[in-house]
Each structure stands twice: as C-alpha cells, then as structure tokens.
C-alpha cells in the first residue's frame, strides 16, 4: 500500500479579488522509500501543495476538495492536535527559508535535542543528546561544532542542522521545499548527496519541491510537472526527461541552458501564466502552447496513460497517439 495517497486535491486562497485556486485536482501516490519531485515555476502551486500536505496553510488558505491519505489515515479529518502529533513524528518538512528556522539564542545541539524530547519525553536527556550526535554524523555536521550558536554556522551547515532536526523523530515522510535554493553549487551538491544517502539508509519517502528541474531529477524517482495549479505530466524521471510529452514540459526542458552538446538557441516560453482567480477553460497552457488547436479550449482534459508509470494531461498528445 502506498504511504501517501492524494486524491483530487484542490486548495485555494481567499483574496480580495476572489477565490484563488492555487492547486486544482492534483492526485498522486507515493510508496515507502520512494521519492517524488514536483517541478514548476513560481506561482504554480507547488509550495501550497507541500504546505497543505502538512496542513500548514496560512489562515486565508483552504483545502476545498480531495483527500490526503497518509499511512492509512485521512489527514483532513484530523483535529489540529492530532495533526501536530503527525507532524514531526511521522512527517517533517524542510522549508525554503529553513536557514532562518533555527533559534538564534540556543545552541544547535540543544535545539535538536529539544525536538527529540518534545515528541518523545520518555527518553532521558542523555539519550537525546547521544541521538543528536548520531544525527549530526549522518548529515555531515562536525561533532565539535554542535555546541555552536546558529550564527556561527555557514548556510550549508544550517541546512544540515535543519535536516538533522527533521530526521530527529524518524519520520516516514519528509517534504523538502527548495532546500538548496540559497546555497552555492558545491554545498548544494553535498546536501543533495546527504539527502539521497539518508533516504536509502532509513527507507524514508521524500517529496522534493523545486523550480529547478535538474535538482529534482537528481534526487527523485518520479517527477510531477506542475503548471498553473495543475499537474500536467507525471512519470518516472527517465521517462519525463527522455520522452517528455506535455508541451509545457518540453518547453521547460528547452529553456534551460546546458553544459554539454551543441550550444542551441534557448527557447523561452512566451507570455505569462494565467490568472488563477479566473482560470481559462480547457487547457491552462493554451495561450503559450505552440501546438495548441482550437479544440484544446473546448475539449475536456483527461489523463492519458503513455506507459503504466507515465501519464500526461494534454488533449493534443492524446490525438497524436490516435486515441
């Protein structure tokens, strides 16, 4: 059975101009020990999705429809108190601005130990601090720097400390939202390696959210491409990369400069993403899509299965395949 199963999730924000559907009709499932990456540009709803899975939406955000089945339980039916128990104990999150999540006036090891003790008060203090040392070894933090204060850490070290904290209660699922965006390439590479190793060692499931498709591809088994609040393509990373189907995925891939091969002209995607308060009918990518036909506006979109693990949300793709 899948560890996490999300069905038809629709999330929005109440704003003065109306209800903004940040995420619409997203379904996916994640098995134990697998990792899933969500890629999309700013405003595509990927961060909202991550927050909703943790039930940490801002006050004006609401989950309109759908179900989140985690470990056999429906998270949307839990009370706030029950949810607090689930968070950290079973699922943890590494935020985009995680570096600011450390309390500046406490030593790093005290903070991690506290995270362990709050959720497991029966453990003695000494056991907790022993665990902190173990965790720090795991994420590559020097034991001698554990008694430092956060401001004495570099960005990469802070990020490691945050990962150690997320691992403190041995969660089954970690949601990582742009965990390396603020870091330099070399540090980013080290952190990504660390995350991969930890995943293997503990058989943790990871949801990885980023705007950078190359980073996501590095750590994820499966990839979901999001555009304007919807999932538009979903599949194993090899399939998504080697035979992308959705025009948006193709456009996204060809808008990244590469280091190898011929220096090809980058093809930027023209136009801007649609307004999510009054989303257009039919395909959301219609205005920016090179292969769009009039029928894309009117025909209802359905998921098209290309292989058992690869599916795409595009009307034209279906026609081309002759279905």
């Amino acid at each position: 059975m899948a560890l996490l199963e999300v069905e038809d999730l629709t999330i929005g924000y109440q704003s003065q101009r109306g209800f903004l559907k940040a995420v619409e009709g997203v379904s996916f499932s994640l098995d134990k020990g697998r990792s899933l990456g969500f890629v999309g540009e700013s405003g595509c709803g990927k961060t909202t999705l991550g927050m909703a899975l943790m039930r940490l939406l801002p006050p004006n955000g609401r989950i309109r429809e759908g179900r989140i089945l985690f470990d056999g339980q429906d998270l949307l039916e839990k009370t706030d108190e029950e949810m607090r128990q689930v968070r950290w104990q079973k699922m943890a999150m590494i935020f985009q601005t995680a570096m600011n999540a450390l309390n500046p006036v406490h030593r790093v090891n005290d903070q991690i130990a506290e995270a362990i003790l709050t959720h497991n008060p029966s453990l003695g203090k000494q056991v907790a601090y022993k665990q902190v040392e173990g965790l720090s070894r795991l994420v590559g933090l020097s034991k001698h720097r554990l008694r430092d204060y956060p401001h004495q850490y570099s960005g990469g070290m802070k990020q490691r400390a945050i990962i150690a904290m997320a691992l403190a209660c041995q969660p089954k699922l970690i949601i990582a939202d742009e965990p390396t965006t603020a870091l330099d390439v070399i540090v980013q590479d080290q952190i990504l390696e660390e995350i991969k190793n930890i995943q293997k060692e503990f058989d943790i499931s990871i949801i990885f959210i980023s705007h950078d498709i190359s980073i996501v591809a590095d750590v994820s088994h499966d990839i979901g491409i999001m555009y304007a609040g919807q999932l538009v393509e979903y599949g194993a990373r090899e399939e998504v990369f080697e035979s992308p189907m959705h025009p948006y995925t193709k456009a996204l891939l060809s808008s990244y400069p590469t280091l190898t091969g011929e220096k090809a002209q980058l093809m930027p995607i023209p136009g801007e993403a649609p307004d999510l308060i009054h989303p257009p009918s039919g395909c959301r990518f219609f205005d920016r899509c090179a292969g769009a036909r009039a029928s894309c506006r009117t025909n209802p979109l359905v998921w098209l299965e290309i292989t058992p693990t690869h599916k795409v949300f595009c009307y034209q793709c279906g026609r081309q395949c002759g279905r």
Binding site: V185, D212, S214, I215, D218, Y256, T260
Partner: peptide, 25 residues
C-alpha cells in the same frame, strides 16, 4: 567548461546535478 584546468573549476563541474548533466560531462 569543456576542459577545466583548475581544481576549483573541476570541483564546480563535479557539483552539477548529476542526472541532467550526466551525458558527456
């Protein structure tokens, strides 16, 4: 970029995300 000589430049190349930049780097 094709033939970096300085160990630091080489380290930068090594740090690129592996999957996408695997071919040929």
């Amino acid at each position: 970029l094709r033939n970096p000589k300085h160990p630091y430049t080489q380290a930068l190349m090594d740090a690129l995300p592996k999957f996408v930049h695997s071919g040929g780097v």
